[in-house]
Amino acid sequence: MNSILTIMKREFHSFFISPIAYIFLTLYLVLTNFLFFQGFFIAGEASMRNYFELLPWLFLLFLPAITMRSWAEERKNKTLELLLTWPVKDSEVVFGKFLASFMFLFIALLLSVTVPISVMLIGNPDEGIMLSSYIGALFLGGSYIAIGMAVSSFTENQIVAFIGTMVILLVGNLISHEAVLASVPATVASFLMSISLESHFTSIARGVLDSRDVIFYLSVIGLALFFNTQSLESRKWE
């Protein structure tokens, strides 16, 4: 556990050494808040529904940018071997890195606190739905990060990692899109909805924390981290 925490701290610290994290967070906050408040006063409804409807698509842009460097950069700088010579298991390194990115996501969401406060000052929102949506956003973001890290572990090119992750996440979201579901048989549509990253988020964001959604996201995160670990293990084969 200590090793995981040490790696997490090292990685998390590395985000804030360069100005990239600040620029990244600033861009994220300006964009999400700008887009949300574009329609908020026209709709006249004290709710953050539109804010959370944006998140799956904004995460699609921002989170691969965080995860693309997690392994690709280590491989490129040849620091991966050094990191893996530490007396820790590969899975601990993977989990530590995951937690660091997850903490970064947590901070990004925390910094949006002015939005729920404003909505509460303006009207009478359902706080339970807002809380649930934030929890859903953490699960969704967590799964994006885990997938992004797994993709990054297979390549040393950051651009490839970024685009690869975006494509996978885009497919993961689009499979529950109405146009896609309408073009496949009902049983396939039902299956696609059950494996869509976005539909589980929508389910949590309506205000219900369902064990099925939680288990789905934990499975996606677990599987992605597992593949990530296996990808690192594969270096031993060479």
């Binding site: 739905i129 809380l131 309506r206 205000g207 219900v208 369902d210 288990i215």
Partner: peptide, 21 residues
């Protein structure tokens, strides 16, 4: 298998103000 089972046996917490669900 875990996901298949979780679809059959599930629990949920309704966080909405009026317990809509």
């Amino acid at each position: 298998l875990l996901n298949f089972q979780s679809n059959r046996h599930f629990i949920r917490a309704d966080l909405t103000e009026n317990k809509q669900y």
